[in-house]
Nucleic acid binder design. Structure first.
Lengths: 244, 244
DNA sequence: CGCTAGGTTGAATCGGGTCAATGGGAGTGG
DNA sequence: CCACTCCCATTGACCCGATTCAACCTAGCG
């Protein structure tokens, strides 16, 4: 499986209405009728192998992408080659919203494992959302939620110490995984220490050390990328306490 | 002037079509016909005195606001009272996009000087943008631009040193001021060192010290909140160079 | 079986934070 | 008009958390 190297169009019809991610993805709250319309729009899927980019900075913007399976990171880079991971996306989450502003993508989206996305042609989405109020509203909510999420990351980057950042990151990850039916306490990281560090504004050594510290403190069990959360409330307490 | 303490509805009709900010604000790129429709929507203005909030976290979300005159900051805070300035908004910029996701605002918007905003009832904007493609598209672009901006801030917070952050901040400010017809080299800061620090993920003392350093290096002249940029390319060089 | 990418750990360094004292400007009230 | 006050800004000294540099380890893969 996942052995095909080119863009792959699913031979059979894909349908949001029968997708088990519909409660997390664009279709949230849509009526049956609206959903059928959306089905017509989201006609193709695309496979992206681990390490490949779904789109990169400067690419012309045509479509949004909904992650169906797999895991992505997005990263921006400045002229001088500085690099920043701006997010990690898992099933049901949308990629490509950055492209609307300029008709060009302003970040890279890289698959961290073999993944599949649903392709949502943007001009058609705009068209459809003129007709279907609920879809329009849902789409706006998703964009707004991204803005709110970004503000949360700014808070993290601007005011938290390393331990707090990593704890917040882990809690956020597990929460999203739990919403997708996975365990709240055991997880496998799909990204390297360096990628976590970039996202959290830390160096990879600091991330590694902090993992070790959490393990010593009995908060986690860490075996490479396998993490088991032993003391969820303890992590939570780390996050919300200016704790002096 | 600016002596009224309550919300003030302008007695005469306000009109985007005759607003000198139309090239920076929501109406960008709209045809004459679309503009007339927008005029009908944006019927009221509201004055906000220096220090007052336009909205705060938890307030029910009804409207977006376009800054007409004045200057705002937005800030989020975490449960434990940590605080983060997420942006500064000047004439022509939109406030309130965070509220769409939840029907509640998720940040505070505070006027840093006596200000006036145009009130854009959100449900009517959605309605109108179903009818007018250009307006819909422009609105989406503005939301997307906010996301892209936030990613830039993440890059700044995640990977830049204090000097680089402050230089980037000043260049961004002057660029926006210049687009509004102000000088590219002389500016008056509307915010305290502490607010700059919060935005940049630094302490106020660090901001102050960095201003002093820039002055010693001949990059700026700093007199309290009066800043004169003496060496724009020098600042630019600070920003784009991992310089080692 | 050896190579390589990723991860861990230690020691030294340093950038920015913390704490504390001082200075300056704008607004207020006598 | 001046004096008082408050808020903001500056500056110094010290400290600490995170980075840097380096060595070493481990797992996965060809």
């Amino acid at each position: 499986m996942n052995a095909n190297h080119a863009i792959k169009i699913e031979p059979f019809k894909v349908a949001c209405s029968s997708c088990n991610l519909r409660e997390l993805c664009l279709p949230v709250g849509l009526s049956k009728g609206d959903l059928d319309q959306l089905d017509a729009l989201v006609a193709t899927r695309r496979n992206v192998e681990r390490g490949d980019t779904l789109f990169r900075t400067g690419d012309s913007f045509q479509s949004l992408y909904a992650v169906r399976t797999g895991f992505f990171k997005t990263c921006v880079s400045s002229e001088d080659g500085r690099d920043q991971v701006t997010g990690f996306q898992m099933a049901g989450e949308l990629l490509g919203l950055d492209g609307i502003s300029n008709d060009r993508h302003s970040c890279d989206a890289v698959a961290l494992e073999d993944s599949q996305v649903c392709v949502i042609p943007y001009s058609q989405l705009e068209e459809l959302s003129r007709e279907f109020t609920d879809l329009q509203h849902q789409f706006h909510k998703i964009m707004s939620r991204e803005i709110v999420r970004d503000h949360g990351v700014m808070l993290l980057l601007g005011s938290m110490r390393a331990e707090e950042r990593l704890a917040a990151f882990l809690l956020n990850l597990t929460q999203r995984l739990q919403a997708r039916g996975f365990s709240a306490s055991a997880l496998v990281l799909r990204m390297t220490r360096e990628e976590i560090g970039s996202y959290l504004g830390l160096k990879l050594e600091t991330v590694s050390r902090t993992f070790s510290k959490f393990q010593e403190d009995g908060l986690l069990e860490v075996k490479q990328r396998q993490i088991r959360i032993m003391d969820q409330p303890g992590l939570q307490k780390l996050v919300n306490s200016t704790t002096c």
